[in-house]
Lab assay of single mutants.
Amino acid sequence: MDVFMKGLSKAKEGVVAAAEKTKQGVAEAAGKTKEGVLYVGSKTKEGVVHGVATVAEKTKEQVTNVGGAVVTGVTAVAQKTVEGAGSIAAATGFVKKDQLGKNEEGAPQEGILEDMPVDPDNEAYEMPSEEGYQDYEPEA
């Protein structure tokens, strides 16, 4: 019985440690998101679009440190934060509304985080759909 109880105690310690790591990862992701939003706020009209992409990228980098179902929630929060940063930029006159959601080359930025393969159960990952990809044929 002692062996059984000791095993359960060790398992509990492992769960607590994993929860603490997840909590730490979420806190880091939130900190990076805040950094990115402050970065966007300090940019001029020309830099705002690039700044919004930076927020998304920093958040995406930190999301990889967070495991399990938390990833889905962090990704949703990050996307809403990026959308909010863009709205703030438009409201303050840093950028025109028609410039939001495009990178410096004018290509749409939507789907940055949505296409990231995420499995809350950590069982399997699927690649994003290939609808947006084109076949590449090298020139002879």
Results as ranks from 00 to 15, higher is better:
S87F: 04
V37C: 09
A89M: 07
E104N: 08
T75F: 14
M1C: 00
A85W: 14
G25R: 13
V118Q: 02
V48R: 01
E83R: 10
Q134D: 08
A90T: 06
Y125E: 07
G93W: 08
E105W: 01
T44G: 04
G101H: 06
A90V: 10
E35V: 08
A140E: 06
V82C: 08
T59H: 01
D115A: 12
K60W: 12
G41C: 10
D2Y: 06
T81L: 12
E139R: 09
E105L: 14
T72S: 09
G67R: 12
Q79M: 11
G36A: 10
A27M: 14
K102C: 05
V77I: 14
E61F: 06
V63I: 09
T44R: 01
Y136K: 12
P120Q: 13
D135Y: 09
Q62S: 13
A27G: 05
K60V: 11
K80N: 03
E20M: 09
S9G: 13
D98S: 12
V71G: 02
T33I: 03
E83T: 07
V48W: 15
M1H: 00
K23M: 14
F94S: 09
V63E: 01
E130H: 10
I112V: 13
T81D: 01
K10F: 05
A17S: 05
V66A: 07
G36V: 13
K10T: 07
M5A: 03
K96C: 15
K6F: 03
S87M: 12
K43F: 12
T33K: 00
V71R: 09
Q79E: 03
E104L: 07
A76K: 15
Y133P: 13
F4M: 03
G106Q: 06
V82T: 05
G93C: 04
K23T: 04
V63T: 02
Q24I: 10
V118W: 05
M5W: 04
A29V: 11
K97C: 10
D98A: 05
Q109E: 11
M5S: 02
V16H: 06
E57H: 06
V118P: 09
K97V: 11
T72F: 14
I112C: 06
Q79G: 04
V55G: 01
Q109F: 12
Q134S: 10
K102I: 11
E131R: 06
Y125Q: 12
G106S: 15
K21C: 03
A17F: 14
G51D: 01
P138W: 11
V37W: 15
E139N: 13
P138H: 06
G86L: 13
A30V: 13
G51E: 01
V48Q: 00
D98I: 03
K12P: 00
A91W: 09
G86W: 15
A69R: 10
A85P: 03
V48H: 00
V70P: 01
Y136T: 04
S129C: 06
Q109W: 10
D98G: 13
E137Q: 06
P128E: 06
T22V: 11
I112K: 07
E35T: 10
K10S: 04
Y133N: 09
V3I: 03
G101Q: 07
A89W: 14
V48P: 00
V63N: 01
K12L: 12
K43N: 02
K43Q: 05
T72H: 15
E61V: 10
E137R: 08
E137V: 05
G51Q: 09
A27P: 00
V37H: 00
S87W: 14
E13A: 14
G41A: 11
Q134L: 12
V16K: 08
K45Y: 04
Q99F: 12
D121M: 09
V48C: 06
G14M: 15
A17M: 13
F4K: 00
G106W: 09
N122T: 06
A27N: 07
T81C: 08
V40W: 02
L100G: 07
K32Q: 03
Q134N: 10
A78I: 12
A69K: 08
E137M: 06
N103P: 10
T81N: 02
V52C: 13
A19F: 15
P138Q: 04
G41D: 00
V71P: 02
K97T: 11
E61N: 09
G84P: 02
E139Y: 11
K21N: 03
T64K: 05
E61C: 06
K6T: 03
Y136H: 10
M1W: 00
E123A: 06
G7V: 13
V26S: 00
A124Q: 07
K6Q: 02
A11L: 13
E105F: 07
A69S: 04
A29E: 00
L8M: 06
S87Y: 14
F4S: 00
V40Q: 00
M5F: 03
T59C: 10
V40A: 05
V40R: 01
K32S: 03
G132C: 12
D119P: 13
N103I: 04
G68T: 13
N65R: 12
Y136E: 03
I112W: 06
S42W: 14
Y133D: 10
Q109D: 11
I88W: 14
K80V: 12
G73E: 04
E20T: 10
Q62A: 09
K21I: 08
K80H: 08
A17W: 14
G67W: 09
G7P: 01
D135V: 10
P117I: 04
T54Y: 07
K96Y: 13
K6I: 11
E114P: 06
V26A: 02
S129A: 04
A19G: 02
A124E: 08
E83W: 15
G106T: 12
A76G: 05
A107I: 03
G14W: 05
K80P: 02
K32G: 01
V82K: 07
M1L: 00
D2G: 01
A107T: 11
L8G: 00
E46D: 14
N103M: 13
E130Y: 09
E28K: 08
L113D: 09
G7K: 08
E114M: 03
V77W: 15
A69I: 07
Y133E: 08
P108R: 11
A19N: 00
F94M: 02
G111K: 12
A11E: 00
E35Y: 14
K58G: 00
Y136C: 06
G73C: 14
F4N: 00
G14R: 12
A89Q: 06
D98H: 13
E123R: 04
V77P: 02
A30M: 15
E20W: 07
E20S: 03
T44D: 00
V15M: 14
E126V: 14
A85H: 04
P117V: 12
V71D: 01
G68Y: 11
G86R: 10
E104P: 07
G101N: 02
E105Y: 13
A85L: 15
Y133S: 03
L113E: 13
Q79V: 09
G25C: 09
G67F: 12
I112T: 06
G86T: 07
V3A: 03
I88H: 02
T75G: 07
A30W: 05
T64M: 06
K58N: 05
M127T: 04
K45W: 15
Y125I: 14
K60P: 01
K97L: 08
E130W: 09
T33F: 13
K34T: 02
Y136P: 07
V16T: 06
A56K: 14
S42Y: 13
K10R: 12
G106D: 03
E61A: 07
T72M: 14
A27T: 03
N65A: 09
V52T: 01
A140I: 05
G73A: 15
G106V: 05
P120R: 12
A29K: 03
V66S: 01
E57G: 03
A17L: 06
I88Y: 12
V70A: 03
G86N: 09
I88F: 02
P128Y: 03
V16M: 15
L38K: 08
A76R: 09
D121H: 12
L113K: 09
S129E: 10
E13F: 08
I88M: 09
A90C: 13
K34A: 09
T64A: 13
V82N: 03
V15R: 00
Q99H: 12
T54I: 14
D115K: 10
T92Y: 07
V82M: 11
Y39C: 04
V63W: 15
K32L: 13
N65S: 10
